[in-house]
Amino acid sequence: MASAKPAATAHRSDSGVMERRAERERTRRNWLLSAPALALLVIGASGPLIIVLVYSFMTPGDFSGVEWTPTFDAWVQIFFTRDIFDDTLGLADAHLSIFWRSVRLSLLTTAITIVFGLPTAWFIATRPGRARTFWLFLITIPFWTNLLVRTFAILEMIRNEGLLNTWLIKLGVIASPLQIMYTDTAVLIGMAYVYLPLMVLPLYAAIERFDFRLVEAGYDLYANRLQVLRRVILPIVKPGIVAGSILVFVPSLGAYVTPRVLGGGKNMMIGNFIELQFGQGRNWPLGASLSIFLLLIVMVALLYYVRASTRGSSHD
């Protein structure tokens, strides 16, 4: 009888140890199972980003690459240029105009894709089932073709001897060809064309869920067409508009191929400017700091998106 009690206690503490061991075992297994994903995240996402970040604080090498002398020069160079004679800092007008062009063209691209995307998405979402699939399929077809090829197709349309100018001259609308190529307009047309599907798809998803009986309720409560659009439809499909805007704005901002092909050398956007630093510019640190700078702009846009979407869902 006397020995029974300690035995029971031992058994109890034993089970505690076992439990702790099982817990440790579980933790280890969880780490092991998530290791591939973690490795991919570290190598694929964080690693390159860290390299870029480190490079942005180094001195440019003579021919390319970096010398391992830490400096903030690359970050200063984003906004300022050092006068070659008296070494004073002045605003880098050329850089600022590139940033401004990038943001302006990206915002305009977003606006244009909303204006064209909303009716398109509305049209598709209001078709009967089978037709809807067909139209959605058409929207996704451009994704099958290389971006460069599509951009050259646009070039073929808008160049001086291209389809558009030829037809306009034949119809007698204009006497001499419109110079569209190598202007901001050309870049805008190209980007709006390339990114339109990215606007249409989230808009379609939002409109497809829209309860069209609400339109009748709006009419019934004395709202005319415009008021129904403004007060009922737009607020409800707003998450789709915001999502589409992010999907269009972010890649527009970093666009490289389209401004390169349609804008020529002069109408650079950030993407081309960064490429320049890693190529002819031979200023890898500046290229790196510009990349991080671009990333920050995108993050601001995403923060806006998160705020806009959470505000929408918790109205009270």
Binding site: L214, E216, A217, Y219, L221, P235
Partner: peptide, 18 residues
């Protein structure tokens, strides 16, 4: 409908969700 002094209670209620 928006010029008729007539209002409807819809079967689905059709309240504005936002």
């Amino acid at each position: 409908p928006f010029r008729r002094p007539v209002n409807t209670v819809f079967q689905s209620y059709a309240l504005f969700p936002h």
